[in-house]
Amino acid sequence: MTGSLRVAMAIGDAGGIGPELAAKVLADAQANAGDLMILGDRRILERGAADAGITLDLPVLGLDAIDGDLPAGSFMIDLGNCDPETTPQGEGSLNSGLASVQNFRAALLAADAGYAGAVFFTPFNKSAMRLGQPDYVDEIGFIDATIHPRESGREFNVLDEVWNARVTSHIPLSEVASRITEERIFDSLRLTDKVMRGAGYERPRIGVAALNPHAGDGRNFGTEDEDIIQPAVERAAAMQIAATGPIPSDTVFVRATKGEFDAVMTMYHDQGQIAMKLIGFDRGVTLIANYPFPIVTPAHGSAYDIAGRGIADLGATRNAVMLGRRLAALEERAEQGEAPQVPLSQLVRKALDTSVTWATAS
């Protein structure tokens, strides 16, 4: 198997349902197509398997055994970085946060070097990750600081019925209006069109949500919809992007789920997230796109309240792995990559090195 067809899988927060979901992925015929490279602590994966009532038969490699030919099929690289004896379930901790950071960084570095064509991670918890890396803000800033891409990425939420793109994401609600500009909306529309075409949509139809109630109601409830959003939509339409809006946000998802739009672009995080999770909480996928490889995860969180109980639903996690695999296959057909040049053990050791300063990009 070439690296471009492998999925690098980072085990998420050890205090939550991430290890259980990782074990369930490995035991699921749809999710595990024999192409998974799991990065994390073997003992945490074993705890997740015990919670799920699963017995795993998986090759496990130490750092001294990963610079030759990698095994055919799925396998694990044991980072030995999270002792379950000192990592409680049901809460975040320094151990779980630091291991999450290291697992994610190792997966990103491996994919960036060509050892995998996609990155997948089970749910993280940002508060715990900040215990391990105080400047951690969100995944996009972390990815940028880790692989130094030419362009930053954007988050998309994906359901079979509809995609959700955002103009702003992890910022306070009080800052949203000041961050929305015509240029930013226009760039977001171009990127959404590009990413969805790469995912197989011939000409994705994008409904653009208004910022204000009733799309401003003729400027009675704000001017942003007419002065900022509408000009950006018109510019996109002039470039043959199938964008429509601004549309009142209390109806745009209704129209999308009835088949009028393939995607909804929202102005801020919860404007889209609430709708998407109501439509399909147990199926939704977060896609981080516009990087050299797709990065995917289930759209739900680490669920500390059910950790260790073996009842975590696999639906969104399975969908995430399958979407990452499909996008990686499309990208491989479009452009064949070169064989990796940097030894994998060197990349993983770098990811584990706590003496390195990893500044999170702003």
Rank of each mutant, 00 (worst) to 15 (best):
M1L: 12
L5T: 08
V7G: 07
A8N: 06
M9G: 04
A10K: 08
G15T: 08
A29N: 13
A29K: 15
G34F: 02
M37Y: 02
M37T: 04
G40C: 05
R47L: 12
A50M: 14
G53Y: 11
I54L: 14
L56M: 08
L63F: 04
L63I: 01
I66G: 04
G68W: 06
G68K: 09
P71H: 02
G73H: 05
F75H: 03
I77W: 06
D78Y: 02
G80A: 05
D83V: 00
E85K: 12
T86M: 03
E91R: 14
L94K: 05
L94M: 10
N95H: 03
N95I: 00
G97P: 12
L98R: 09
S100R: 01
Q102I: 00
Q102Y: 00
N103K: 02
F104H: 06
L109C: 11
D112F: 01
G114V: 00
A116F: 01
G117N: 04
F121Y: 13
S127Q: 15
D135M: 05
Y136C: 10
I143Q: 04
A145Y: 05
T146H: 03
R150V: 00
S152R: 13
R154N: 10
D160T: 11
R166K: 09
T168P: 01
T168E: 08
S174G: 12
S178G: 07
I185T: 03
D187R: 13
R203M: 07
I206F: 10
G207R: 08
V208P: 05
R219E: 13
N220L: 08
E224I: 04
E224L: 10
D225Y: 02
E226C: 06
A236G: 12
M239W: 06
M239L: 15
Q240Y: 04
P248W: 14
F253C: 09
T257P: 00
K258P: 06
G259V: 13
G259E: 13
H269M: 10
D270T: 08
M276Q: 09
L278C: 06
D282G: 03
T286I: 13
T286W: 01
L287G: 04
A289E: 15
F293G: 03
I295V: 15
P298V: 14
R309W: 10
I311Q: 12
D313I: 12
L314S: 11
A316H: 00
V321W: 01
L330S: 09
E331Y: 05
E331T: 04
R333G: 10
E338L: 07
Q341Y: 03
S345W: 05
R349S: 11
D353H: 01
D353R: 02
V356N: 14
T357E: 15
W358V: 15
A359E: 15
S362P: 03
S362H: 14
